[in-house]
Amino acid sequence: MSMRIRKYSWQLAPRSLREIRQRVFIDEQKVPPDLEWDDTDEIADHFLAVLPDNTPVAVGRMFTTLDDTAHIGRMAVLPEHRGKGIGEAMLRHIMAEAAGHVQDLHLSAQEHAVPFYQRSGFHVFEGPYDDAGIPHFGMRCLAPVEMISALSRQSPGPAPMILGSDDSSWLVENDAQLPQLMDNLVSQARQRVWLYDRLLDHDLYDRQRLRDLFSGLARYHRNSEIRLLVHDDGPLVKRRHQLVELMRRLPSSITLRLVNGDYPPAEQPFVLVDRQGVLYRHRFDRPEGFAGFADSGRVRLLGETFQRMWDTARPSLELRELPL
């Protein structure tokens, strides 16, 4: 459907923006007015979709927190205009506004709307929880630049970048794409992350967000395991590394071993997430490769390779002796 989406501050937003929220959230969904109108409106960007004849039909808002996370919310389409793709167009427009500025998008979705947001690459990471008497789930998208690029040039499956659902292959062509896809995979782990590389390169692995994702998996998913298998621990001994510090604080969940040189190791690095996700690179010193979110066959074969190397590997005595 042809329409335009305009951005406003709260102070300059037209009356129709408030009226749509009033009709959808307060009148239709019975959200208490004192919960609908909050202080966040003052700091958020507000979006209004209008038809070619200037009829207002949908709204949404976005604000950014100090940790550079963009939060999308107050998405609403008038009842008489639903089912026409307006909500999806609004969401992707807001995502495009955020792309290039932030790499982490969050939103709170009503239970029935979860599949709608999955179609644009958001996955559930918390919930359910109650919000204004309605069940909600926390959802996030950790690769908005890649997602917007993909959605604009192709028609991916019904749940792009959703672990266990997206059977397409996402190519990795440069250094910027590699951590984006890795983080998106790791953020969806519920059981395990097995990582194999020559070394834990500081540019790729020594990052606060990756540490936070590993920490969240280890702390909030019982019986989860994170295995780090590398050839060389020298750089880790010489310079502090966030994953090493985390490993030493959560030793029951995160383990690092060194490849046994007496046995032939795999010649390509990879990351395995649960039983479905894989990030595979063609060379240790290059970013090029691919990510798969529903590639159980490849994950099984690489998992067998990883397990063979892991069984003959040894712990790092040097890391064990480092002070906290």
Rank of each mutant, 00 (worst) to 15 (best):
V24I: 13
M139Y: 08
D41H: 05
W37D: 01
R239F: 01
I94W: 08
M95E: 03
G121T: 09
A70K: 05
W37I: 05
P14F: 14
P56G: 07
P135M: 03
P179R: 12
S149T: 15
G83H: 06
Q188D: 06
S215W: 14
R140H: 10
D45N: 13
R190A: 09
D39K: 07
V273E: 05
L195E: 00
H71R: 14
E88F: 02
L272V: 09
Q276D: 11
P128C: 04
H202C: 07
G127D: 03
N174A: 06
T65L: 03
G164F: 07
D197W: 10
L107H: 02
R239D: 11
E126A: 13
L200G: 13
D233T: 14
A98L: 10
M147C: 15
Y117N: 02
P32H: 09
V237T: 15
L279A: 06
Q103S: 11
R257N: 10
P115K: 03
Q180P: 06
Q103W: 05
E225F: 10
M95F: 08
I5F: 08
E245M: 13
Q191I: 08
G289Y: 01
P14W: 12
F293S: 00
L279V: 11
T255F: 01
L319H: 04
L185C: 05
L217M: 15
V50N: 01
P144G: 11
L105E: 01
D274R: 10
D45Y: 08
L246R: 14
A13C: 11
P269K: 05
R140V: 01
S16D: 12
G138A: 13
L200F: 06
D166F: 12
Y117S: 03
T69Q: 15
V172M: 07
E288N: 01
A96R: 12
A76W: 04
D27H: 06
I254L: 15
A76R: 08
R219C: 12
L213P: 14
M139D: 04
E42R: 05
S120E: 03
N174Y: 04
G121F: 04
P156L: 08
P158F: 08
E42C: 03
S224Y: 12
E304W: 00
P269M: 10
H112L: 07
A159Y: 03
H221K: 07
L181V: 09
R192G: 01
S2H: 15
V102F: 02
V102E: 08
G297W: 05
S9D: 11
V299Y: 05
G121M: 09
E88Y: 05
R283T: 06
L204K: 11
T64G: 00
R18L: 15
R209Y: 10
Q307E: 02
E126M: 02
P144V: 10
R18V: 11
S296G: 04
T305H: 02
R239L: 06
D233I: 13
Y220I: 12
L171T: 12
D295S: 07
D206W: 12
Q29R: 06
G83I: 09
E304S: 00
E245P: 08
V124L: 06
A132Q: 09
F306P: 00
A176Y: 11
P135I: 01
L317T: 00
P179Q: 13
I43N: 01
R281P: 08
W310R: 00
I43A: 04
N260R: 11
G83F: 07
L317F: 00
S252A: 15
F270H: 14
V278M: 07
Y129D: 03
